[in-house]
């Protein structure tokens, strides 16, 4: 199991980012968590554009994608991921406040791999992060193209860092 992989958290609300990172600080599952604060930034990161033009070619092991975001929303990001030859197999977990049936159905229709509702209760929230980390960060075998070269590290092991 490779520890070189990183997660991409696409989340516009700073509070959510902070909660997530607080939990991951205690239970790290990836060597790095990259945070994009809206859909446009997420796409720039994934397609290595703008400020991310020079980043390494590694793809995240999973994208945790919020739906309701300014500029480009989660559905639009998902759509672009699924229509790109390089990114189409990238695991995407919708991570959202809403459990509206419409949002769930739309997500799966666009090719989401999972749909997770952020619980209000903090204990349940911690459990959720642990579930996601354990499964998508460790248990799941990502498509070959998303895994980085073996042994290489691009950040301190077990210590998540934040990028904006």
């Amino acid at each position: 199991m490779s520890h070189t992989q990183h997660m991409l958290l696409v989340e516009d609300n700073q509070n959510d980012v902070e909660l997530m990172l607080a939990v991951l600080e205690e239970f790290p599952f990836a060597n790095e968590v990259v945070v994009a604060l809206d859909g446009a930034e997420a796409l720039d990161y994934l397609f290595r554009r703008e400020q991310f033009a020079t980043r390494s070619e590694d793809l995240p092991c999973v994208v945790l994608l919020d739906i309701k975001m300014p500029k480009v929303n989660g559905f639009e990001v998902l759509k672009q991921i699924r229509t790109d030859a390089q990114l189409r197999w990238l695991p995407v977990v919708m991570l959202t406040s809403s459990r509206a049936e419409r949002d769930i159905m739309e997500s799966y229709a666009l090719g989401a791999n999972a749909y997770v509702v952020k619980p209000v209760d903090f204990d349940e929230y911690v459990e959720m992060v642990k579930d996601i980390g354990r499964f998508w960060g460790r248990r799941n075998e990502p498509p070959l193209s998303t895994a980085g070269p073996g042994g290489e590290t691009s950040g301190p092991i077990n210590s998540p860092t934040v990028r904006h």
Binding site: N13, N15, D16, L19, A22, I67, K68, T96, S97, S98, R99, A100, D103, K118, P119, V120, D121, F122, D123, Y125
Partner: peptide, 17 residues
């Protein structure tokens, strides 16, 4: 569904933290 649930989660989460 989206905007009202989130602040509740923050309050609960940060109170616990």
């Amino acid at each position: 569904a989206h905007d009202l649930r989130a602040p509740i989660r923050y309050v609960h989460g940060f109170v616990r933290l």
